[in-house]
């Protein structure tokens, strides 16, 4: 819908103008009484919320479709501004720990060291080739690229993988509690778990390999019993939950669109 502007001066003027208008709207919104704020937010929520389904349900390319990309860009810009707020939040919380030398001060120091190092290295790795008129040397570029790899692939990825791997131990401890046979349901759960687990290891399938592959006795073979449990018991139950949740989601979306969900309609009581 909108073509990029070729004249940089007009571009800058429009950017500054957009920023000024945004600030004025924000100030007006903050200084208005709570009931006005509530109505403005409810109105904007309704209009934007109505736009998406209408654009989708009116067949083919319609008069609303031209606004799709500009609206997506607007959402991205708004989300971009909030990233700054996230960084401010982190800096305030951890800065206070360092200034007041609290017990958690070393963790906050680790945060600042990690945050500044990663941002600095990432920035130079990405922008160094075009940052200045004079092109940097090959060696310099290779250094920042290697530094970025050390921080990202050598530190961040192994650390996140380590946290993910903890899941294996947590599954064992959760399974231990869940499978303690105290009730009929827990007993059934335990029996189903044993069948599915055994069917997934060679020794399990070997245990019932002597049973015939045809006739009704084939259902006693562990691999068949496990398949029956997962496709005929587990999958329908999960789909049933998903089915209920999907309709619930539709209802919740409608409540949000109509601003009926007052628990998070901002603007204070009024």
């Amino acid at each position: 819908m909108f073509e990029p502007l070729q004249n940089p001066m007009v571009n800058y003027i429009l950017v500054v103008g957009a920023l000024i208008i945004s600030v004025v709207i924000l100030i007006a919104l903050h200084s208005s009484p709570p009931y006005v704020r509530r109505w403005v937010i409810a109105g904007v929520t309704f209009l934007v919320g109505l736009y998406v389904p209408l654009e989708f349900y009116i067949p083919r390319h319609n008069f609303l479709t031209v606004w799709r990309d500009p609206l997506s860009d607007l959402v991205r810009v708004l989300a971009g501004f909030t990233i700054g707020l996230g960084i401010v939040n982190l800096v305030i919380v951890h800065g206070r720990h360092i200034l007041q030398r609290t017990a958690n001060f070393p963790f906050s120091l680790a945060f600042f060291v990690g945050f500044i190092s990663m941002a600095f290295v990432g920035f130079l790795h990405h922008y160094k080739p075009d940052l200045w008129a004079q092109k940097p040397s090959e060696g310099e570029l290779a250094f920042w690229s290697a530094a970025y790899k050390v921080f990202f692939e050598g530190l961040l990825l192994p650390l996140t993988s380590t946290v993910f791997s903890l899941l294996a131990f947590f599954i064992v401890s959760a399974a231990y509690r869940a499978f303690r046979i105290r009730t009929l349901e827990a007993g059934l759960l335990m029996a189903a778990a044993i069948i599915v687990m055994l069917a997934n290891v060679p020794v399990g399938t070997w245990l019932t390999s002597w049973l015939p592959q045809e006739g009704w006795l084939k259902w006693l073979r562990l691999e068949n019993a496990a398949l029956w449990l997962t496709t005929q018991i587990n999958a329908p139950a999960m789909r049933g939950i998903l089915f209920g949740a999907a309709v619930g989601g539709l209802g919740a979306a409608l409540r949000i669109l109509l601003s009926l969900e007052r628990s998070f309609s901002f603007g204070g009581q009024g």
Binding site: G240, I241, L242, G244, A245, V247, G248, G249, L250, G251, A252, L254, R255, L260, E261, R262, S263
Partner: peptide
């Protein structure tokens, strides 16, 4: 599942929210 989307209606007991939960159950 669907209980998740009924929580606010359950907490507030607001008739309008209860009405939407009733509508979901009919659906």
């Amino acid at each position: 599942g669907e209980e998740y989307y009924a929580v606010t209606a359950y907490l507030t007991r607001e008739p309008i929210l209860l009405g939407s939960v009733w509508g979901q159950d009919v659906c």
